[in-house]
Structure formats: structure tokens, C-alpha cells
């Protein structure tokens, strides 16, 4: 039986005889690394192009098909000190990338046009009414029109199409006043130029488009980046499955290449990456990631296995089923769909603002026109003044107010170990006042740990650790990890289902079941005091030691729970595990509110109950059984070790062993929301100053341009303050 990594799933045909591969790379931090990698890979003669993307930490490779094996590249990168994992750009991410490219192109066109038109406008502003001849002014206006009209027709398309879509759905969004403003400003300017008037607003219109596109691009870029990080995360986990092809061949393949109906092998210590049914084999399985329960079950032929299940003792052969077939999964799926639907009713801050904003602006413009008509102005002058009102109120600062803060805040979140899944996560995280924690894998670390390590002598512990390296059993693996063992002992054999044994310096040693090592007494004593623990015994000659292995609370959990309390958040534990385990964890953390043996349906019911009381719930959980609750809660966070389903519905994912990112996420989001509100008020304040001037008919293109760039700059600078939050955490 041979086993090799299969790259074929990731290879793409880039041209005749050209192959393309994308790799996610761990450890790139600077431009120097980038040059080093590109140079080193280009030295391989068949490679035609090697490009590193520093922001996404990715490498795109192209080479002539035939001789070179892709694993050569991975090896070469390993020599340089970088771990590389093949990955596939998800469909959703490819769409985001394309959108963000298109926006950047439009932004470029608008910005260049704006610069050139500004250059033409400055002489008009400074020359108007003094030494400029009317013919020259007209000439400059026509030139501006020549640049602006095609540029605007191209770069303002996103606004026009979005406004059109909103109007067709009988709604109003921010793009409706924007589109009306731009169209009217251009139309009026053209008319005024043709009739040799003093003022034309081409410069204001194109500058407006450029600023708004900048806001749009920031927003889109944030979305693209979160997608890219999520994609890298999936690749860095390097999830592979051992596919059983036939008697003589098994193959290690990426999970994405596994199809329903395939047979995969699960060996002891392995976590299943697929759903399916056991065909043959018998093993203890740990389903804590799925149900929250920490006690192991027995799987035999016919048992259902879900992705995330840890195989503990024996090997299993599993036939992969489509994701929705299992009873538990279809139940979860149904709950999820309901929950996601109810969440989509949430209105973002930007949407709420624009609902209020569009009618106010349009009514103001209309009233201005009517007012001037009543006051006896000509129809032409009244319309011009009304349009000036529309131009000056166009939500330039408003369009930047929220995306600018979001971009800065998501950067701050990322550097403290929190990745955002959704764009409005910041707003929702900032509003929460009640936190529901799952226990298993969320408050506790997902990996097992030795609980009585302090009472074991260092020599015995070290020996147990080195012995444990020869076993694949998860409990043994926990002992090896806790003892920080590096060097396995030689001549160790495994007794299936019992443990490992061998000889050290002429003394017989065994590590395994207490009954097999003659340590039942000690084991029973530990089980009595700590029913949650799994036990493993070491016999060394006549001495005997029993290790209690169990899930441990995250190291900073107590502090963070206290910190959340100080931030005014109520905390509750809600777990699918049995009562004693949940009670013990809650007591250790000083949490008075807890519920045990909760089903996914009950978790949602609890969230509904809390929201009826007016609480905004933050759900923190990792298991498959938490997924519906994660989707139903006002906001949700998952650890990076969570199941795929949970991670996909959570608003944010946090990295590392610490619980601190949860508190940090709430804190940064609160500051960010405050800055967003401040920015909105700044924009309103600007309008309060500018609109009376516009209504009075005193706005010149110069004032419009200065007001727009001034307010945009103010909002951007205010957004940058979100970077300072990090220091206070």
C-alpha cells in the first residue's frame, strides 16, 4: 500500500502545455521574502512565471507541463523555510476579486479625469470675472465636458445600475440620490456651457464620483480580503482524507476531491473530514465537536460519522455520503435555513441612513425650486439652484463614513486574531449585551490535556511522553503533548486495543489501559473524583502512574469572562454536554447562569427568549450543534477549530488558544460603531452648513469642490482613529 499527495485536483490548464497552481504560503511577512521566493522558483527551468501576492499570502505558479512534479515546488519552498499548501480559489472569492478589480479600474478612470478637470477648472475659478475672455472660459468648459462625460459614463455605472435595481424593486437606496445628483449636475453643466453661462459643475460631478468610488472600493476590498483569509485558513488546515481506491492502493487526497460514494479510511487519532456511514471496523469515537458531549461512543458498521468526529481506538472504513443525508445533519440544515432567513432582516446602519437621507434631500431640492419660483426667480434660475442643492448634499462624506471605519477596524481586528466573515459584523458585535458560550471546544481547548501533570514526577512524565509518541491514540497523544516529548523510544510495539510496550534500560515499560498495566485501583480513584477524565496508566518495573486526561479550560478564560462582565455583558454557558461537566466548568469560571444537555432546537429557543426580552445575544460556539444558534443570534463568533458549517455561519472567527479575541472583538466593534456614528454626524453637520448656502443660490463650483473634498478628508481622518483601539486592549 502506497500513499502520496495528489495535486491533480488543484492543477489548472493555463494555456497549451502550461499548468497553473495556487499555493497558500505560511510565514511570508515582508517584501524581501517575496523576492526570495519568486527568484528561487524562477530558477527552475520549466517555470514560466512565479508571482507572490503579499497581502493574500499566496503564490501563483505556471510551468510547462510534463517533467516537473508539483511537489518539487512545495519542497523548494520548504527549503527556504515556508510551508505551502495547495488551494483552490472558491467561487465566491473569485467573484469578489473580479468586483474589486472592476471598481479599482473605474476609480482610476474617475480619479485621473478629476485631476485633469481640476487643472482646467483652476484657471476658470481664478480668471472668472477678471481677465478671462468668455470664449476662453467656454473653451475650458467644453474641454472639461469632453473629459468628464465619457469618464462619468464609464465610472459611475455601479451607482446607476444599483439605483435602477432599487427603483425597480420600488425601494430607495443611497445610490438613487447619488445617481440623480450626478445626472442632473452633468446635464445642467452641459446646458450652461452651451448657453455660455459662468458656471459649470463638471469638476464637482467627477470628483464626487471619484470619492464615492473610493468608499465603494474600500468596502469591496474589505469583503474580498475576508474571503481571501477564509480561503487561506481552509488551505492552511490542509485537510486531507485517506481515500481507499482498492486493496493495493490508498491515496491521500484533499477533502475537496472526495465525492459521495467514495470510501475513506479513518485511522486512530484522525479527525474525519467527511460525513458518511461506517462499512467496517470498530472504534471509540469522540463526537464532542458535533454534539458537545465529551464522553466517547462506540462506532460499528452502520454507524453514522460526521465531519469533525475524532477516531480514538480502531481504524474505520467509511462510505462518504452527501452532506444532507444524515438525520442529525438534515435537522441542523433545516434549523440553519430558518435562522439565516430571519437574520437577513437586519438593516445596516448605512441602509437606515439612506432611507432617511434620500427623501429629505429630494424634498429640500424641490422646496428650494418652488421657493425661488414663488419668490419670482426665472424657471431657469430656480432649477439651477435646486440642482446645486442636490450636488452639494450628494453623500460624498456619507459614502465614505462607514466603509472607511470598517476597513480600519477590520485591520485592527485581524491583528488581534479575529477574522470577519460578514461586512456588517462590526455593527452587530458592537450592539450585543448578552453572551452565550458553548462549553466544549469554546470555553475549553479543543485538544485534550493532562489534568494531574503537577503531581507526576518529571522523569516518569518524560518517559510516558516518549512512550506515548509511538501510539496514535488521542489520549496518548495528549500525554506526549503535555510532556513536550520529542524523541520516541526505540523498540516499542503496540498491543491493539491495550496500549504500547517495550523495554527501557532493561526494565519493562507499558503505557495503556489501567487494567492492562495493573493500575485499576488508582484509575478508579481518579474516575471517582473526576468523571470527565479519560485515564491512561504507565507501568515502569514496579512503579505505576495514572494520568488523568481531559479537556482543559482556555488559559485566560476566567479573566476574559470577568472582563466581559465589566464591559456590561451578561454571560451564560449553554452546552450539549452532561450536567456535572457543565456545572464544573461554570463554577471554575465564576459563571452563575448555565444550562446543560441542551439540544440545537433549545439553543435557538433560548436565544429567541432572550431577544424577546430585548437582549442582543452574542453566541460563541464551535460545534455542529451550535451552528443554528450561531446563525440565529444577533452576532456570533467561532474558534478557528470549529466545524465548517459553524465557521461559515459565524460573523467572525478567532485564532489561537486564548479567549481574549472575543472580548477584543466586542471592544473594537464598539469603538468602530461609535466612530461610524460620529462620521455620520460630521456628514450631517457639513450638510447643515452647506445646504443653506446652496438654497440661497450662492454655491459656485469652487465652493462645491472645496466642501466635498474637505468633508471627505475629515471623515477619513476620523476613521483612522479606529487604529488606536488596539493599544487600549
Amino acid at each position: 500500500m502506497g500513499s502520496s499527495i495528489d495535486f491533480s485536483h488543484y492543477l489548472k490548464q493555463a494555456g497549451p502545455d502550461l499548468l497553473h497552481l495556487d499555493l497558500a504560503i505560511e510565514g511570508i511577512s515582508c517584501a524581501g521574502c517575496m523576492a526570495k521566493i519568486e527568484r528561487s522558483l524562477s530558477e527552475i527551468p520549466q517555470v514560466t512565471s512565479a508571482r507572490v501576492n503579499l497581502t493574500d499570502r499566496r503564490l501563483a505558479l505556471e510551468w510547462k507541463a510534463g517533467v516537473v512534479d508539483p511537489s518539487l515546488f512545495v519542497d523548494r519552498l520548504a527549503e527556504l523555510g515556508y510551508k505551502a499548501y495547495p488551494f483552490e480559489i472558491a467561487g465566491a472569492e473569485a467573484v469578489e476579486v473580479e468586483r474589486s478589480r472592476a471598481l479599482l479600474r473605474r476609480l482610476g478612470v474617475a480619479a485621473f479625469a478629476a485631476m485633469n478637470v481640476m487643472m482646467l477648472s483652476v484657471p476658470v475659478w481664478s480668471g472668472n470675472g477678471s481677465d478671462m475672455l468668455p470664449e476662453q472660459r467656454d473653451f475650458f468648459h467644453w474641454l472639461s465636458a469632453l473629459i468628464v462625460l465619457p469618464a462619468a459614463a464609464y465610472s459611475a455605472q455601479p451607482f446607476f445600475s444599483s439605483a435602477y435595481a432599487a427603483l425597480r424593486a420600488r425601494g430607495v437606496n443611497m445610490d438613487v440620490p447619488i445617481s440623480v445628483g450626478i445626472a442632473l449636475a452633468l446635464g445642467m453643466s452641459l446646458f450652461e456651457t452651451a448657453s455660455h453661462a459662468d458656471h459649470a459643475y463638471f469638476d464637482a460631478a467627477i470628483m464626487l464620483i471619484a470619492f464615492l468610488l473610493a468608499g465603494r472600493y474600500l468596502d469591496q476590498n474589505m469583503r474580498r480580503r475576508t474571503r481571501a483569509f477564509a480561503g487561506n485558513l481552509a488551505a492552511l488546515k490542509a485537510e486531507t482524507a485517506t481515500k481507499y481506491v482498492n486493496e493495493d492502493e490508498i491515496r491521500t487526497v484533499p477533502v475537496a476531491a472526495i465525492r459521495p460514494g467514495d470510501i475513506v479510511l479513518l485511522r486512530p487519532g484522525e479527525r474525519s473530514a467527511v460525513d458518511g456511514n461506517v462499512i467496517s471496523g470498530r472504534s471509540e469515537i469522540d463526537q464532542s465537536l458535533i454534539t458537545g458531549e465529551t464522553l466517547p461512543h462506540i462506532a460499528v458498521a452502520g454507524s453514522a460519522i460526521y465531519a469533525g468526529t475524532l477516531v480514538r481506538s480502531g481504524a474505520l472504513r467509511v462510505r462518504v455520503s452527501a452532506a444532507s443525508e444524515g438525520t442529525l445533519l438534515s435537522e441542523i440544515q433545516r434549523l440553519l435555513e430558518n435562522a439565516v432567513q430571519s437574520r437577513s432582516r437586519y438593516l445596516r446602519l448605512a441602509e437606515r441612513t439612506s432611507r432617511l437621507y434620500a427623501p429629505v434631500v429630494h424634498v429640500t431640492a424641490l422646496l428650494t425650486m418652488i421657493g425661488w419660483l414663488v419668490a419670482g426667480a426665472t424657471v431657469h434660475d430656480s432649477i439651477i439652484t435646486a440642482i446645486a442643492v442636490l450636488i452639494i448634499t450628494c453623500p460624498c462624506a456619507l459614502g465614505l463614513a462607514i466603509p472607511a471605519v470598517q476597513t480600519v477596524a477590520s485591520g485592527a481586528l485581524f491583528s488581534s486574531g479575529v477574522l470577519l466573515n460578514t461586512g456588517d459584523a462590526i455593527e452587530r458585535l458592537a450592539e450585543v449585551d448578552y453572551v452565550l458560550f458553548d462549553k466544549t471546544g469554546t470555553l475549553t481547548l479543543p485538544e485534550l490535556d493532562v489534568a494531574n501533570a503537577a503531581s507526576v514526577s518529571p522523569e516518569i512524565f518524560e518517559m510516558a511522553g516518549r512512550l506515548a509518541l509511538s501510539s496514535r491514540h488521542p489520549v496518548a497523544a495528549a500525554v506526549a503533548r503535555a510532556a513536550r516529548a520529542k524523541a520516541p523510544l526505540s523498540g516499542i510495539e503496540e498491543e491493539p486495543g491495550q496500549g504500547v510496550f517495550g523495554e527501557v534500560d532493561g526494565v519493562k515499560v507499558r503505557l495503556g489501559r489501567p487494567s492492562w498495566c495493573g493500575a485499576e485501583e488508582a484509575a478508579r480513584a481518579i474516575m471517582a473524583s473526576d468523571p470527565e477524565a479519560s485515564v491512561v496508566a504507565l507501568r515502569h518495573g514496579d512503579t505505576c502512574q495514572v494520568f488523568a486526561v481531559r479537556q482543559r479550560l482556555r488559559p485566560d478564560a476566567t479573566n476574559i469572562i470577568a472582563a466581559l462582565g465589566r464591559m456590561g455583558l451578561a454571560v451564560e454557558v449553554i452546552s450539549g454536554d452532561r450536567e456535572p461537566a457543565v456545572r464544573a466548568a461554570a463554577r471554575a469560571l465564576g459563571i452563575t447562569q448555565w444550562r446543560a444537555e441542551v439540544t440545537p432546537v433549545d439553543k435557538i429557543a433560548r436565544i429567541d427568549e432572550l431577544s424577546r426580552q430585548g437582549r442582543k445575544v452574542l453566541m460563541v460556539g464551535d460545534g455542529l450543534n451550535d451552528a443554528p444558534a450561531l446563525a440565529a443570534a444577533h452576532a456570533s463568533i467561532s474558534p478557528v477549530t470549529a466545524t465548517h458549517v459553524s465557521q461559515a455561519v459565524a460573523d467572525a472567527v478567532f485564532l489561537g488558544d486564548q479567549l481574549a479575541p472575543v472580548a477584543t472583538a466586542v471592544r473594537i466593534s464598539r469603538t468602530a460603531l461609535r466612530l461610524m456614528r460620529q462620521n455620520l454626524w460630521l456628514a450631517v453637520f457639513y450638510n447643515v452648513l452647506a445646504v443653506p448656502v446652496a438654497i440661497a443660490g450662492l454655491v459656485t463650483p469652487l465652493i462645491a469642490a472645496a466642501a466635498m473634498s474637505g468633508s471627505s478628508l475629515l471623515v477619513m481622518l476620523n476613521a483612522l482613529r479606529a487604529r488606536q483601539i488596539r493599544r487600549h486592549v
Binding site: R105, G108, F112, M115, N116, M119, L120, I147
Partner: peptide, 30 residues
């Protein structure tokens, strides 16, 4: 003022050149 006849097209050409360079770099995957 006749100098404008040269300067204006020159300025616009330079602007357009910048734009073309920007789009070119975008297309080449930077």
C-alpha cells in the same frame, strides 16, 4: 494665450498616459 494650444493637449495627453499606465499595471495583476 496662443501657448494654450500646445499646453492643453499636452497636459491631457500626459493625463491619459498616466491612466493607460494604471490600467496596464492592473491588467498585469499587480
Amino acid at each position: 494665450m496662443e501657448v494654450l494650444v500646445f499646453l492643453v493637449p499636452l497636459a491631457i495627453t500626459l493625463g491619459a498616459l498616466g491612466l493607460v499606465a494604471f490600467l496596464w499595471s492592473l491588467r498585469n495583476g499587480q
